[in-house]
Protein backbone atom coordinates (compact mmCIF):
# COMPACT_ATOMS: atom_id res chain seq x y z
CA UNK A 1 0.00 0.00 0.00
CA UNK A 2 1.16 3.58 -0.55
CA UNK A 3 2.65 5.03 2.61
CA UNK A 4 2.56 8.74 3.32
CA UNK A 5 5.81 10.43 4.23
CA UNK A 6 5.67 14.04 5.30
CA UNK A 7 2.94 16.28 3.99
CA UNK A 8 3.19 15.81 0.24
CA UNK A 9 4.95 12.55 -0.56
CA UNK A 10 3.89 8.92 -0.94
CA UNK A 11 6.23 5.96 -0.75
CA UNK A 12 5.16 3.06 -2.97
CA UNK A 13 6.44 0.00 -1.13
CA UNK A 14 5.63 -2.45 -3.92
CA UNK A 15 7.13 -0.04 -6.51
CA UNK A 16 4.97 -0.43 -9.63
CA UNK A 17 6.98 -1.35 -12.72
CA UNK A 18 7.02 0.50 -16.00
CA UNK A 19 6.31 -2.51 -18.20
CA UNK A 20 6.57 -0.77 -21.55
CA UNK A 21 6.57 2.67 -23.12
CA UNK A 22 6.39 4.35 -26.51
CA UNK A 23 6.47 7.82 -28.03
CA UNK A 24 5.72 9.34 -31.42
CA UNK A 25 6.51 12.84 -32.67
CA UNK A 26 6.32 15.31 -35.53
CA UNK A 27 8.94 16.17 -38.12
CA UNK A 28 10.64 19.02 -36.24
CA UNK A 29 11.05 16.84 -33.14
CA UNK A 30 12.35 14.08 -35.40
CA UNK A 31 15.12 16.42 -36.54
CA UNK A 32 16.03 17.18 -32.91
CA UNK A 33 18.80 15.48 -30.92
CA UNK A 34 16.45 12.70 -29.70
CA UNK A 35 14.67 12.17 -33.01
CA UNK A 36 16.12 8.72 -33.65
CA UNK A 37 14.74 7.37 -30.35
CA UNK A 38 11.04 7.92 -31.17
CA UNK A 39 8.95 4.93 -32.23
CA UNK A 40 7.54 6.86 -35.16
CA UNK A 41 8.04 10.26 -36.73
CA UNK A 42 5.05 11.81 -38.52
CA UNK A 43 6.42 13.83 -41.43
CA UNK A 44 3.05 15.50 -42.12
CA UNK A 45 1.58 17.90 -39.51
CA UNK A 46 -1.93 16.54 -40.10
CA UNK A 47 -0.72 12.92 -40.05
CA UNK A 48 -3.09 12.25 -42.96
CA UNK A 49 -6.12 13.46 -40.95
CA UNK A 50 -8.41 16.38 -41.85
CA UNK A 51 -7.44 18.58 -38.87
CA UNK A 52 -4.60 19.08 -36.40
CA UNK A 53 -6.83 18.08 -33.51
CA UNK A 54 -7.56 14.76 -35.20
CA UNK A 55 -3.87 14.34 -35.90
CA UNK A 56 -3.11 14.81 -32.20
CA UNK A 57 -5.75 12.21 -31.26
CA UNK A 58 -4.21 9.81 -33.73
CA UNK A 59 -0.73 10.34 -32.26
CA UNK A 60 -1.98 9.76 -28.71
CA UNK A 61 -3.75 6.56 -29.75
CA UNK A 62 -0.70 5.45 -31.69
CA UNK A 63 1.69 6.02 -28.76
CA UNK A 64 -0.61 4.15 -26.35
CA UNK A 65 -1.27 1.30 -28.79
CA UNK A 66 2.46 0.84 -29.31
CA UNK A 67 3.13 0.88 -25.56
CA UNK A 68 0.40 -1.72 -24.96
CA UNK A 69 1.66 -3.87 -27.82
CA UNK A 70 5.19 -3.81 -26.40
CA UNK A 71 3.84 -4.90 -23.02
CA UNK A 72 2.55 -8.09 -24.62
CA UNK A 73 -1.01 -7.37 -23.53
CA UNK A 74 -4.06 -6.13 -25.44
CA UNK A 75 -6.11 -2.98 -24.73
CA UNK A 76 -8.75 -5.28 -23.19
CA UNK A 77 -6.36 -6.25 -20.38
CA UNK A 78 -5.58 -2.69 -19.29
CA UNK A 79 -7.67 -1.83 -16.21
CA UNK A 80 -7.49 1.95 -16.53
CA UNK A 81 -5.97 4.59 -18.72
CA UNK A 82 -5.08 7.99 -17.23
CA UNK A 83 -4.73 10.54 -20.00
CA UNK A 84 -4.95 14.23 -20.77
CA UNK A 85 -3.85 16.88 -23.24
CA UNK A 86 -3.95 20.64 -23.81
CA UNK A 87 -7.00 20.96 -26.03
CA UNK A 88 -10.31 22.29 -24.71
CA UNK A 89 -12.25 19.55 -22.91
CA UNK A 90 -9.32 17.17 -23.49
CA UNK A 91 -10.51 16.12 -26.93
CA UNK A 92 -7.19 14.71 -28.08
CA UNK A 93 -7.47 12.08 -25.33
CA UNK A 94 -11.20 11.38 -25.53
CA UNK A 95 -11.37 11.11 -29.30
CA UNK A 96 -8.06 9.30 -29.45
CA UNK A 97 -9.06 6.68 -26.90
CA UNK A 98 -12.78 6.25 -27.64
CA UNK A 99 -12.35 3.08 -29.71
CA UNK A 100 -9.98 1.31 -27.31
CA UNK A 101 -12.63 0.46 -24.71
CA UNK A 102 -10.37 0.99 -21.69
CA UNK A 103 -11.90 2.60 -18.54
CA UNK A 104 -10.66 6.18 -18.85
CA UNK A 105 -9.78 8.91 -16.38
CA UNK A 106 -9.42 12.23 -18.20
CA UNK A 107 -6.91 14.55 -16.56
CA UNK A 108 -5.93 18.17 -16.93
CA UNK A 109 -2.61 19.27 -15.52
CA UNK A 110 -1.56 21.13 -18.68
CA UNK A 111 2.01 20.16 -19.55
CA UNK A 112 2.40 18.29 -16.24
CA UNK A 113 0.04 15.58 -17.52
CA UNK A 114 2.72 12.90 -17.82
CA UNK A 115 3.84 13.01 -14.20
CA UNK A 116 0.27 13.67 -13.05
CA UNK A 117 -0.99 10.52 -14.79
CA UNK A 118 1.98 8.50 -13.48
CA UNK A 119 1.33 9.72 -9.92
CA UNK A 120 -2.29 8.55 -10.03
CA UNK A 121 -1.78 5.34 -12.02
CA UNK A 122 1.08 4.22 -9.79
CA UNK A 123 -1.12 4.52 -6.69
CA UNK A 124 -3.82 2.44 -8.42
CA UNK A 125 -1.30 -0.28 -9.22
CA UNK A 126 0.42 -0.08 -5.83
CA UNK A 127 -2.85 -0.47 -3.98
CA UNK A 128 -3.99 -3.41 -6.11
CA UNK A 129 -6.89 -1.45 -7.61
CA UNK A 130 -5.34 -2.12 -11.01
CA UNK A 131 -2.93 -4.77 -12.17
CA UNK A 132 -2.27 -2.92 -15.41
CA UNK A 133 -2.71 0.83 -15.80
CA UNK A 134 -1.69 3.04 -18.70
CA UNK A 135 -0.67 6.69 -18.85
CA UNK A 136 -0.77 8.81 -22.01
CA UNK A 137 -0.56 12.43 -23.05
CA UNK A 138 -0.05 14.48 -26.17
CA UNK A 139 0.33 17.96 -27.65
CA UNK A 140 0.39 19.40 -31.15
CA UNK A 141 2.11 22.65 -32.12
CA UNK A 142 -0.52 23.78 -34.62
CA UNK A 143 -3.53 22.80 -32.48
CA UNK A 144 -2.06 24.53 -29.41
CA UNK A 145 -1.04 27.67 -31.32
CA UNK A 146 -4.52 28.26 -32.62
CA UNK A 147 -6.17 27.59 -29.28
CA UNK A 148 -3.81 29.64 -27.13
CA UNK A 149 -2.19 32.14 -29.51
CA UNK A 150 -2.53 33.17 -33.16
CA UNK A 151 -3.34 31.37 -36.41
CA UNK A 152 -0.34 29.57 -37.85
CA UNK A 153 0.05 31.85 -40.88
CA UNK A 154 -0.25 35.05 -38.85
CA UNK A 155 2.90 37.13 -39.27
CA UNK A 156 4.02 37.76 -35.71
CA UNK A 157 7.41 37.81 -34.04
CA UNK A 158 8.30 35.33 -31.30
CA UNK A 159 10.02 36.69 -28.22
CA UNK A 160 13.33 35.12 -27.03
CA UNK A 161 11.49 33.73 -23.97
CA UNK A 162 8.82 31.93 -26.04
CA UNK A 163 8.75 28.14 -26.21
CA UNK A 164 7.79 25.81 -29.02
CA UNK A 165 4.91 23.39 -28.34
CA UNK A 166 6.05 19.88 -29.14
CA UNK A 167 4.03 17.83 -31.62
CA UNK A 168 3.98 14.34 -30.21
CA UNK A 169 2.64 11.87 -27.70
CA UNK A 170 4.03 9.51 -25.11
CA UNK A 171 2.51 6.59 -23.26
CA UNK A 172 3.53 3.90 -20.81
CA UNK A 173 2.03 0.86 -19.12
CA UNK A 174 2.42 0.25 -15.38
CA UNK A 175 2.19 -3.21 -13.85
CA UNK A 176 2.59 -4.76 -10.41
CA UNK A 177 5.68 -6.55 -11.59
CA UNK A 178 8.03 -6.40 -14.52
CA UNK A 179 11.53 -5.58 -15.65
CA UNK A 180 11.26 -1.94 -14.55
CA UNK A 181 12.20 0.84 -14.18
CA UNK A 182 10.12 1.27 -11.03
CA UNK A 183 8.14 4.13 -9.52
CA UNK A 184 9.15 4.36 -5.90
CA UNK A 185 7.89 7.70 -4.58
CA UNK A 186 5.58 10.45 -5.75
CA UNK A 187 4.97 14.02 -4.64
CA UNK A 188 1.77 15.82 -5.57
CA UNK A 189 2.24 19.45 -6.52
CA UNK A 190 0.55 22.54 -5.14
CA UNK A 191 -0.76 25.35 -7.31
CA UNK A 192 1.91 28.06 -7.25
CA UNK A 193 1.40 31.52 -8.74
CA UNK A 194 4.17 34.08 -8.48
CA UNK A 195 2.31 36.69 -10.51
CA UNK A 196 3.79 36.08 -13.97
CA UNK A 197 1.31 37.27 -16.60
CA UNK A 198 3.40 36.90 -19.74
CA UNK A 199 2.01 34.07 -21.89
CA UNK A 200 5.25 34.15 -23.90
CA UNK A 201 7.34 33.35 -20.84
CA UNK A 202 5.86 30.13 -19.54
CA UNK A 203 9.19 28.82 -18.26
CA UNK A 204 9.38 31.73 -15.83
CA UNK A 205 5.76 31.17 -14.77
CA UNK A 206 6.30 27.45 -14.09
CA UNK A 207 9.73 27.50 -12.43
CA UNK A 208 8.38 28.36 -8.93
CA UNK A 209 5.93 25.42 -9.10
CA UNK A 210 8.77 23.04 -9.96
CA UNK A 211 10.94 24.51 -7.20
CA UNK A 212 8.12 24.13 -4.69
CA UNK A 213 7.46 20.47 -5.50
CA UNK A 214 11.15 19.53 -5.60
CA UNK A 215 11.74 21.25 -2.27
CA UNK A 216 8.71 19.53 -0.74
CA UNK A 217 10.02 16.16 -1.93
CA UNK A 218 13.43 16.69 -0.35
CA UNK A 219 11.90 18.06 2.87
CA UNK A 220 9.53 15.09 3.15
CA UNK A 221 12.04 12.36 2.35
CA UNK A 222 15.26 13.74 3.78
CA UNK A 223 16.96 12.78 0.51
CA UNK A 224 19.51 15.05 -1.13
CA UNK A 225 20.03 16.02 -4.80
CA UNK A 226 23.31 14.04 -4.67
CA UNK A 227 21.29 10.82 -4.35
CA UNK A 228 20.09 11.23 -7.95
CA UNK A 229 21.67 10.84 -11.36
CA UNK A 230 19.25 13.30 -12.84
CA UNK A 231 16.56 15.73 -11.77
CA UNK A 232 14.43 16.11 -14.86
CA UNK A 233 11.90 18.92 -15.26
CA UNK A 234 9.19 18.97 -17.93
CA UNK A 235 9.33 22.08 -20.04
CA UNK A 236 10.95 25.01 -18.25
CA UNK A 237 13.18 25.81 -21.22
CA UNK A 238 16.34 27.88 -20.91
CA UNK A 239 14.74 30.77 -18.99
CA UNK A 240 12.73 28.62 -16.58
CA UNK A 241 15.68 26.32 -15.89
CA UNK A 242 17.85 29.28 -14.93
CA UNK A 243 15.14 30.49 -12.56
CA UNK A 244 14.56 27.04 -11.04
CA UNK A 245 18.23 26.76 -10.14
CA UNK A 246 18.21 30.19 -8.56
CA UNK A 247 15.01 29.55 -6.60
CA UNK A 248 16.31 26.25 -5.22
CA UNK A 249 19.66 27.81 -4.29
CA UNK A 250 17.72 30.30 -2.17
CA UNK A 251 16.19 27.27 -0.43
CA UNK A 252 19.70 25.80 0.08
CA UNK A 253 19.23 23.09 -2.54
CA UNK A 254 21.81 22.86 -5.30
CA UNK A 255 20.59 20.69 -8.17
CA UNK A 256 23.00 22.35 -10.60
CA UNK A 257 24.62 19.79 -12.86
CA UNK A 258 22.06 17.10 -12.13
CA UNK A 259 19.28 19.18 -13.58
CA UNK A 260 18.04 18.51 -17.10
CA UNK A 261 14.94 19.87 -18.79
CA UNK A 262 12.93 18.01 -21.43
CA UNK A 263 12.27 21.33 -23.23
CA UNK A 264 16.01 21.80 -23.72
CA UNK A 265 16.75 18.14 -24.51
CA UNK A 266 14.15 17.66 -27.24
CA UNK A 267 15.34 20.44 -29.58
CA UNK A 268 18.65 21.89 -30.61
CA UNK A 269 17.72 25.27 -29.10
CA UNK A 270 20.41 27.16 -31.00
CA UNK A 271 19.70 25.86 -34.47
CA UNK A 272 16.04 24.84 -34.51
CA UNK A 273 14.51 28.30 -34.03
CA UNK A 274 12.68 27.37 -30.84
CA UNK A 275 13.90 30.26 -28.71
CA UNK A 276 13.79 29.11 -25.06
CA UNK A 277 13.07 25.43 -25.90
CA UNK A 278 10.19 23.00 -26.23
CA UNK A 279 6.97 22.83 -24.24
CA UNK A 280 3.67 20.96 -24.17
CA UNK A 281 2.53 17.63 -22.74
CA UNK A 282 4.24 15.85 -25.61
CA UNK A 283 7.57 17.40 -24.61
CA UNK A 284 8.04 15.76 -21.22
CA UNK A 285 6.16 12.61 -22.31
CA UNK A 286 8.22 12.32 -25.48
CA UNK A 287 11.57 12.73 -23.73
CA UNK A 288 10.67 10.42 -20.82
CA UNK A 289 9.18 7.66 -22.98
CA UNK A 290 12.23 7.52 -25.24
CA UNK A 291 15.63 8.75 -24.09
CA UNK A 292 15.18 8.71 -20.31
CA UNK A 293 13.45 5.35 -19.87
CA UNK A 294 15.88 3.84 -22.40
CA UNK A 295 18.76 5.08 -20.24
CA UNK A 296 17.13 3.72 -17.07
CA UNK A 297 16.63 0.36 -18.78
CA UNK A 298 20.14 0.17 -20.26
CA UNK A 299 21.92 1.15 -17.05
CA UNK A 300 22.84 4.68 -18.19
CA UNK A 301 20.83 6.06 -15.27
CA UNK A 302 19.92 4.40 -12.00
CA UNK A 303 17.76 6.85 -10.09
CA UNK A 304 16.01 10.00 -11.25
CA UNK A 305 13.34 12.48 -10.28
CA UNK A 306 10.88 13.36 -13.03
CA UNK A 307 8.98 16.57 -12.40
CA UNK A 308 6.73 17.69 -15.27
CA UNK A 309 5.42 21.24 -15.03
CA UNK A 310 2.15 22.75 -16.21
CA UNK A 311 0.74 26.25 -16.64
CA UNK A 312 -2.92 26.24 -15.69
CA UNK A 313 -4.16 29.42 -17.39
CA UNK A 314 -6.63 29.58 -20.25
CA UNK A 315 -6.88 32.11 -23.09
CA UNK A 316 -9.89 33.58 -21.24
CA UNK A 317 -8.06 34.07 -17.93
CA UNK A 318 -5.11 35.62 -19.75
CA UNK A 319 -7.30 38.00 -21.74
CA UNK A 320 -8.90 39.05 -18.47
CA UNK A 321 -5.45 40.00 -17.22
CA UNK A 322 -5.02 37.23 -14.67
CA UNK A 323 -1.63 35.79 -13.75
CA UNK A 324 -0.62 32.20 -14.58
CA UNK A 325 -1.11 29.58 -11.85
CA UNK A 326 1.26 26.64 -12.30
CA UNK A 327 1.75 23.13 -11.01
CA UNK A 328 4.41 20.41 -10.95
CA UNK A 329 4.04 16.76 -9.96
CA UNK A 330 7.04 14.62 -9.17
CA UNK A 331 7.76 10.91 -9.51
CA UNK A 332 10.90 9.11 -8.38
CA UNK A 333 11.95 6.46 -10.88
CA UNK A 334 14.59 3.82 -10.09
CA UNK A 335 16.20 1.34 -12.48
CA UNK A 336 16.10 -1.33 -9.77
CA UNK A 337 13.52 -2.07 -7.11
CA UNK A 338 14.81 -0.84 -3.74
CA UNK A 339 15.57 -3.68 -1.32
Amino acid sequence: MPKRIGRYTLRLENSPAILSYAAVAGKKEGLGPLGYEFDKIYEDTTAGESSWEKAESLMLRDALSRAIEKSGYTPGSINYVFAGDLLNQGIASTYGLRDLGIPFFGLYGACSNMSLSMTLASVYVESGAASLAACATSSHFCAAERQFRFPLEYGGQRTPTAQWTVTGAGALVLAEDGPGPFITRTTGGRIVDKGVRDMTNMGAAMAPAAADTIKNFFDDTGASPNDYDMILTGDLGLVGSRLLNELLKQEKLDIGERHRDCGILIFDCENQDVESGGSGCGCSAGVLCTHILNLLRDGGLSKILFCATGALMSPTSSQQGDSIPCIAHLVEICANRPQ
Binding site: Q157, P160, V196, N201, P208, L247
Partner: peptide, 21 residues
Protein backbone atom coordinates in the same frame (compact mmCIF):
# COMPACT_ATOMS: atom_id res chain seq x y z
CA UNK B 1 8.66 29.38 -1.50
CA UNK B 2 10.01 32.34 0.41
CA UNK B 3 10.48 34.58 -2.62
CA UNK B 4 7.86 37.34 -2.97
CA UNK B 5 6.09 38.17 -6.23
CA UNK B 6 8.00 41.44 -6.52
CA UNK B 7 11.37 39.73 -5.96
CA UNK B 8 10.45 37.04 -8.46
CA UNK B 9 9.50 39.64 -11.04
CA UNK B 10 13.02 41.08 -10.77
CA UNK B 11 14.56 37.61 -11.04
CA UNK B 12 12.46 36.91 -14.14
CA UNK B 13 13.49 40.14 -15.81
CA UNK B 14 17.14 39.32 -15.16
CA UNK B 15 16.85 35.74 -16.43
CA UNK B 16 14.85 36.55 -19.58
CA UNK B 17 16.87 37.60 -22.60
CA UNK B 18 15.52 40.85 -24.11
CA UNK B 19 14.25 41.08 -27.70
CA UNK B 20 16.94 42.06 -30.19
CA UNK B 21 15.60 45.59 -30.60
Amino acid sequence: MSVTNAEYKKMTEKASPPSKK
